[in-house]
Design a protein around this nucleic acid. Structure first.
Length: 577
RNA sequence: GGACGCGUAGCUCAGCUGGAUAGAGCAACUGCCUUCUAAGCAGUAGGUCAGAGGUUCGAAUCCUCUCGCGUUCACCA
């Protein structure tokens, strides 16, 4: 029951009829690409508005006003149309009879489980990789945003019919793992020798590695020969990684996040995928031994010419070609990442999404180039960048320093404000804009705090049902025509916008739109609530059961929609404040 | 210096991928509790959409340049 889709289909039919009736020669497909049917910004201009006349005027060589005048009659045949008019530069505005909205409401309530079902994904696979934090320590505040964003996006895409894989790439190879092993060994020795140790600069000082030391003692006793470290490297590595990955997964679980797939970088390196990408690149002539120019503009001090194996990523719009092998002959991080993306392409057989932190912006174009080359341009990859989160306490920045060990972990944040608050607030801003997270404000019980505001609206819905002694579940709308007040109709119209919001959020990969929708829905509802004070349109009218029933039904529709939105964000609704 | 992103009301931000008179919230001022939660609502005021060109029926949105802020910049991960 997507009312916009319903009328859009009518509009398409009308356009075709218009064309054949008047023997025009424009190409319908081209017009449909640009055709819109939207609620006008200002409701004075009616319920829906189309740009048809304006986009046709060039092809027909007629003014858009004249086209609009001629087209109006086709629209007035649509079911439920009350009035059609032409305004502004050539908008055709439609106003519906109130009945259309009332029928929508009763329809929506009858199909409350699936009225907003959208089949955008049509079961297609999509892989979304997010978090992928280095397995060297607990998740911190900075990871929270990418985690919530990625997870909400995954949930959103699932909702609209995609088969979604939530994936975490574990960077368990390379230098940082060496450091991790060194750090863990220090903690092990600390425990065995019972002498406290200073963690040198460059290694990981966090207390959590003491647990790893303990785990090593439990598993191997105090007789581990740690010199030379090669002898125990694998053992320590595996105990450290196990511990840290369990810690990370635990933190994610507290945020309501469960990944489907964890892929190990180490396994990618040891597998056959790297030779695979070489084959593909060779067959496309995208690989060569060469020397890179120094980056434009900078003058690196230790610049030296180096012949390396290079990928011609510049063919696909990257600013420079990229090294696949280091001068010592080992693979670069980018090469293994390319192999990893080939792995994702092979497994997914569908589009990819990467969620990255803002510090990786420079990396995007080479990954895009890689995916295009490796998939023969058949797979699209969308990289979403999450900007910084500024942690504040009542407006003042919280100072963090990794060295002093007082950085705020994800787990700290969740413990302080709860999972639902973290999830909501992280989505109250576009992902590519930096976001303030103020520990005081997000817990405030006031309108300034959007989480509260939305939850309060839902609690109020529930409060009305409590007072009415009617159970929300058992309520069946009897006579929608009893809803007559413009404010009631306005609320219904806004609910009718929900599937459209879902659709736009999903297509643009922008879960924040759901938050904004819920805030606005709450606002309209709070407003109607207060009308009970001065206009005497209370929801519960003691001596008019039918009217009460109709109004309660509207409240139910609001509650259903709020809950639906929250459920996509994986947030629990609150029933009583 | 190059690349990418951002610049919208005093502050914090939306703006449905090119539409009509650019919208919210805070802060400021004015009102609304004998009545379903005032933890809320209604109203007033507030704008050169950083600036300058261009593209077209139409630009905050697309293109070019300038200014400002941020991130990033050969073998790291």
């Amino acid at each position: 029951m997507n009312i916009y889709k319903f009328y859009f289909n009518h509009l398409i039919e009308a356009v075709e009829k218009f064309k054949s009736d008047l023997k025009y020669s424009f190409i319908v497909e081209d017009i449909l690409k640009k055709l819109t049917l939207e609620p006008p910004k200002n409701s004075i201009n009616g319920d829906m508005s189309t740009n048809l006349a304006m986009i046709l005027s060039k092809d027909l060589k007629l003014s858009s006003k004249i086209i609009a005048e001629n087209f109006m009659v086709y629209i007035s045949n649509f079911p439920g149309v009350d009035n059609v008019n032409v305004a502004g530069p050539g908008f055709i505005n439609i106003t519906f009879k109130q009945n259309v909205w009332l029928e929508f409401l009763s329809n929506m309530l009858q199909n409350s489980g699936n009225w907003d079902k959208l089949e955008i994904g049509k079961g297609k696979n999509i892989n979304i990789e997010y978090i992928s934090a280095n397995p060297t320590g607990p998740l911190h505040a900075g990871h929270a945003r990418g985690a919530v964003f990625g997870d909400a996006l995954a949930s959103l895409l699932t909702e609209v019919g995609y088969t979604v894989t939530r994936e975490y790439y574990i960077n368990d190879a390379g230098n940082q793992i060496e450091k991790l092993v060194d750090s863990s060994l220090l903690r092990y020795n600390e425990l065995v020798t019972n002498k406290s140790i200073d963690i040198p600069e460059g290694l990981y000082p966090g207390e959590y590695l003491k647990e790893v030391g303990k785990n090593l003692v439990e598993k191997y006793g105090d007789k581990l020969e740690t010199d030379p470290k090669e002898k125990v490297f694998e053992k320590v590595r595996s105990v450290s990684l196990d511990f840290i990955m369990r810690m990370i997964q635990n933190d994610l679980l507290k945020l309501g996040i469960e990944m489907d797939v964890f892929t190990s970088e180490k396994e990618i390196i040891s597998g056959h995928l790297l030779t695979e990408i070489l084959k593909i690149l060779e067959s496309k002539n995208l690989i060569f031994n060469g020397v890179l120019d120094p980056p434009k503009g900078t003058h690196p001090k230790n610049w030296e010419k180096r012949e390396q194996l290079l990928f011609k990523s510049s063919v696909y719009g990257d600013d420079s070609d990229r090294a696949l092998k280091k001068s010592d002959g080992t693979w670069t991080y980018f090469a293994t990442d390319m192999a990893y993306h080939l792995d994702k392409i092979n497994r997914t057989k569908g589009d990819l999404i990467n969620v990255l932190g803002a510090d990786h912006i420079g990396y995007i174009s080479r990954i895009n180039a890689a995916v295009r080359a490796l998939s023969n341009d058949t797979i699209s990859i969308d990289t979403k960048v999450c900007a910084l989160v500024n942690l504040l306490e009542d407006g003042k920045p919280i100072k963090m320093s990794k060295r002093a060990g007082n950085f705020v972990t994800l787990s700290d944040i969740i413990n302080a404000v709860g999972k639902d608050v973290v999830r909501f607030i992280m989505l109250t801003r576009r992902n590519d804009q930096s976001l303030d997270f103020d520990f005081k404000k997000v817990m405030e019980k006031s309108k300034e705090n959007p989480v509260f505001y939305v939850q309060y609206a839902h609690a109020r819905c529930n409060s009305i049902f409590r007072s009415s002694k009617v159970k929300e579940k058992e309520l069946i709308l009897k006579n929608p025509k009893r809803l007559k007040d413009v404010h009631e109709i306005e609320l219904i119209k806004f609910i009718a916008l929900w599937p459209r919001t879902l659709e736009l959020a999903a297509k643009n990969h922008e879960p924040h739109r759901i938050c904004y929708y819920l805030i606005e829905l709450s606002s309209i509802f709070h407003s109607l609530w207060n009308k009970g004070k001065d206009n005497n349109i209370k929801f519960i009218v003691e001596d008019d059961l039918e009217l009460t029933n109709a109004r309660l039904s509207l409240v139910k529709a609001v509650a259903l929609t709020i809950r639906k939105g929250l459920s996509i964000l994986k947030i629990e609704p609150i029933f009583e404040m």
